[in-house]
């Protein structure tokens, strides 16, 4: 009974649909709200030391769930982990969804932060306030056009099925919501113009800027001022030229199947990738994995002294 009450329910659970007592979900929600209120109230009202202990306790409890879910070997057939009748694997899905919900709410905080900063820039006419204005124009244009286009699909469950049939009333004109199947690849509506025409190309442009920056960074940084720098530059040149036809042409005279084929630039670059780069990547990977494990343990057990849990002396 108690387990049933604390076991979370979601709208898609079969047990709920086939006539589980309606009050179970409400009791569950109330209990959850009560628990949150108690914990938050305690954190705010308690003294520094008690607050710290409470936060440490919450961090430990939250982490313990995933620790148990990971370390307990699962059932061989279902591959799900259970502990005293509670299916931890299924519950982790629900907790994952809860995390997404929390993340969704924090998105509002992010938007608030953007509006606050850019609003202030415009209000005080700070240097570059025009950019802040362009933020508001872009933000509103994308939001309004996307909502206007999809509005009908939120309320009419048969929208997707019927949108192209004659006689079906569309709420928005075609320049807001173009459902013409011949325009499937590029709808002629305002959102597509903004998304396909502006956003995608601006995104790709930002990525392409990288190419220019790589050249200027390489030109500035790859100068042979020491032995190490020489090794770095020679390897970079081999890799670069080994990857493209023009570079490969340098050693094209060496027969592919001959004794000296290993001296072809593409062969050398593959050797560097496979034999030198591969093991190095693995070694760094081991170190990083263990570093992440150490950090995770420290955060879980509130041992990250000097940064999160205690002011350094």
């Amino acid at each position: 009974m108690i387990l049933g009450l604390i076991n979370p329910l979601t709208g898609t659970d079969d047990i709920w649909i086939v006539g589980d007592p309606w009050y179970r979900l409400i009791i569950f929600c109330l209990l959850a709200a009560l628990l949150c209120t108690v914990v938050l109230g305690a954190i705010h009202m308690a003294g520094n030391q008690a607050t710290r202990l409470l936060v440490m306790g919450c961090a430990f409890a939250a982490g313990l769930f995933y620790v148990l879910e990971f370390f307990i070997p699962p059932d061989a057939k279902s591959q799900e982990v259970s502990l005293w009748g509670v299916n931890l694997t299924q519950m982790s899905g629900i907790i994952g969804n809860a995390n997404q919900v929390v993340a969704g709410f924090t998105f509002l905080l992010g938007v608030y932060n953007l509006v606050h900063i850019h609003g202030n820039n415009i209000r005080r006419l700070r240097k570059g306030w025009g950019y802040s204005l362009s933020f508001f124009i872009a933000f509103l244009a994308m939001t309004v056009s996307a909502f206007a286009r999809d509005w009908q699909s939120f309320f009419d469950p048969k929208y997707d099925e019927l949108k192209n049939t004659a006689g079906y009333q569309l709420w928005m004109p075609s320049w807001v919501n173009d459902v013409d199947p011949t325009h499937a690849l590029m709808p002629h509506d305002i959102f597509s113009v903004l998304f396909e025409g502006f956003y995608r190309n601006m995104d790709a442009t930002m990525f392409s800027i990288l190419a220019f920056y790589i050249v200027s960074a390489a030109y500035r940084a790859f100068r042979i001022r020491s032995k190490e720098a020489a090794v770095l530059m020679i390897t970079a040149v081999i890799m670069m030229m080994g990857q493209v036809p023009l570079g490969q042409a340098i050693t094209a005279a060496i027969p592919k199947d001959g004794f000296w084929h290993g001296l072809r630039i593409e062969e050398i670059s593959q050797f560097v990738l496979n034999t030198i780069n591969g093991p190095v990547q693995r070694a760094i990977g081991f170190g990083l994995g263990l570093g992440a494990l150490g950090m995770a343990l420290r955060i879980w057990l509130s041992l990250e002294r000097g940064t999160y849990f205690e002011e350094t002396s």
Binding site: Y219, R223, I224, A236, L246, G247
Partner: peptide, 18 residues
């Protein structure tokens, strides 16, 4: 290919100055 060649040329120029 030509972009790579260009980077190579830039590297040579940079190192010539050194």
């Amino acid at each position: 290919s030509f972009a790579h060649l260009y980077i190579f040329i830039m590297l040579v120029l940079g190192n010539l100055s050194v």
